[in-house]
Amino acid sequence: MIELVFATNNLHKLEEVQAVVGDQFRILTLAEIGCTDEIPETGNTFEANASQKSSYLYDKYGYDCFADDSGLEVLALGNEPGVYSARYSGTRDMQKNIDLLLQRLGNQSDRRARFRTVISLRVGKAEHFFEGTVEGSIGFERRGDGGFGYDPLFTPHGHSRTFAQMSAAEKNTISHRAIAVAKLAEFLKTTY
């Protein structure tokens, strides 16, 4: 079984990724390798943040690893919150982040949005990127109790329910992270 470290402390992300890559790969957490560092994330693009995190982990701990950066881009807000999705309101309180997003959108009719994920994979000195996007729209209110982050607001195109109203298995077949991870898994299967 191939082991890779996923540079995250987000257990929701870890569960989503493990479900997509299956049991051919064992995804190790930061805790499992003894990393308690606050990994830097100071880039102004998803690519820069993902690369910064995977490079930090590889350079300091020496593990083949991958890191992602994901976020919500709302077209009417100039692609905000973007890389600031997790701390849009100045805190990591997702309810406050959602409230701010709804406030800024107000009653605008253009509610087009997309979730984007960029994964940086470090295997030895080589770095590879994988991207996934899912297009959709932002609702006027929260709907559903599942998922995390902006899931209660986001309805993917072709669906009538938000990510938060879908089961984890259903979301994992269409999510931005699932698309990026599927590309990562395909690359790993042909490389390892």
Rank of each mutant, 00 (worst) to 15 (best):
R26H: 14
I27P: 01
L30M: 08
E32W: 11
G34K: 07
C35K: 06
C35D: 07
C35N: 08
C35S: 09
E38S: 13
I39N: 08
E41D: 05
E41A: 11
T42R: 11
T42V: 08
T42H: 12
N44Y: 06
N44R: 14
T45E: 06
T45R: 09
F46L: 05
F46E: 09
E47T: 15
E47W: 03
A48I: 05
S51E: 12
S51Y: 06
Q52K: 07
K53T: 12
S54L: 03
S55I: 05
Y56L: 06
L57R: 01
Y58M: 00
Y58T: 02
Y58R: 10
Y58V: 00
Y58S: 09
D59G: 09
Y63Q: 12
Y63H: 15
D64I: 10
D64L: 04
C65I: 07
D68L: 02
D68H: 01
D69T: 11
S70I: 01
S70R: 04
S70W: 03
G71E: 11
G71L: 08
E73P: 01
A76E: 14
G78T: 14
G78A: 08
N79H: 13
P81C: 12
V83E: 09
V83G: 06
Y84W: 14
Y84C: 07
S85N: 11
S85L: 12
S85T: 15
R87L: 11
R87K: 15
R87C: 13
Y88D: 06
G90E: 05
T91L: 02
T91Q: 04
D93T: 05
D93V: 08
Q95S: 10
Q95R: 12
I98L: 04
I98Y: 03
L100S: 02
L101A: 05
L102Y: 04
Q103F: 12
Q103P: 00
Q103Y: 13
R104G: 00
R104K: 15
G106E: 10
G106H: 10
N107H: 13
N107R: 12
Q108P: 00
S109Y: 01
S109P: 00
S109W: 00
D110E: 14
R111S: 06
R111V: 10
R111T: 10
R112V: 02
R112Y: 00
R112K: 14
A113F: 02
A113K: 03
